[in-house]
Design a protein around this nucleic acid. Sequence first.
DNA 1: ACTTTTGTTAACCATTTGGTTAAACTATAT
DNA 2: ATATAGTTTAACCAAATGGTTAACAAAAGT
Lengths: 203, 203
Amino acid sequence: MNKVKDTTTETDILNAAKRIFQHKGMAGARMQEIADEAGINKALLHYYFRSKQLLFEAVFKMAFSMLAPQLNEVMNADSSLFEKIRKFSNNYISFVLKHPYLPNFIIQELNRNPEFVEKLIAEDHFPNIEKFKKQVNDKVTEGTIKPIKPEQLFINIMALNIFPFIGAPLLKGFINIENQTYNQLMEDRKTEVAEFIINAIKI
Amino acid sequence: MNKVKDTTTETDILNAAKRIFQHKGMAGARMQEIADEAGINKALLHYYFRSKQLLFEAVFKMAFSMLAPQLNEVMNADSSLFEKIRKFSNNYISFVLKHPYLPNFIIQELNRNPEFVEKLIAEDHFPNIEKFKKQVNDKVTEGTIKPIKPEQLFINIMALNIFPFIGAPLLKGFINIENQTYNQLMEDRKTEVAEFIINAIKI
DNA sequence: ACTTTTGTTAACCATTTGGTTAAACTATAT
DNA sequence: ATATAGTTTAACCAAATGGTTAACAAAAGT
């Protein structure tokens, strides 16, 4: 009964489904296309995951669990506020450059299905930013940084790191540059975003 | 041949389609549902717009044309750089608070269909940020603001203004607050975002 | 008055789509 | 070797879906 065997088929399916779902979303993805991508028969998808919905949820949770821990680790570390901002920006952008479709996939499906957030919160390892909030409030009180609500600072950090990937097609149009140049901008942002934020709040 | 009559049916369809498309996306929307929402027969949709694709494109262009001019006007105005940042943030957030689903709709469909951007660029009134870029470069040269690439500053402005709406479900989960509190945060951002940006670049 | 154009509907159609079934195949244990 | 449990497939199926047709109603033009 042990899973000594390599579960290649199941993981093949998951990876194929991840690719298709991330490109087309839940509604736009087709079971047949996922089966083709995985190189198997469509019935096997149902054998392993019962329904499109369950397959989707498996993919979604996998995607979310690739991103959430990063946020959690950095935000709850013992490092200073500025270090957190630097580390998160660097880590996050490096990671997303390797998985460019992940953030958009998650945000998109959460918008279509807002009640899904509650399910995620109930799960383990959902990010918690209490420590970060306290840290910001302390620094504001002691006058080390400009007054700002922790929530606003948090939103700003997320926005500056995540949006450039989600809004890439639009931004490329506005700025009028090609993919490669845009990627170079992202590369630069690994450090520049953090400095931008720190400049905005330091006294 | 004059359109003296009110084109209620056509606009009814457009408005209904806008609501459905914005909530469910192109792939997730159903023609029947749009017809129901508009209170008409499904065949009428095809009578007015031929196909789902064309109806979608009509809705998309309408949505885009509600947002793009704002960007254009502010960015190409004669006002100072800081004024532009303040005005855009205030205008944009005010507008989106009234149309919360617009930005996500546009960004989402552009991600599914990146070649759509080229079509938009070809159309009239596609935003142009050359004036803004020159303005930033000048101020950097004369030492009035910290060195920053105009493209990066532009991305930051867009990110800080747009992302809080697109990422709302996720951010509400992270910050652990309700809709009303979140809306108050957005209200505050009308002015705070601009000051955050200005603090980040002023010397 | 009547003809033509425009607007609207119910019924229909072909295709797509998620899902099922039963049979075949594979490996493993006995 | 053979029974057994797990894996994979081809063939099906019912429902949903985008789109069409033909008939009819309402304006608009003459």
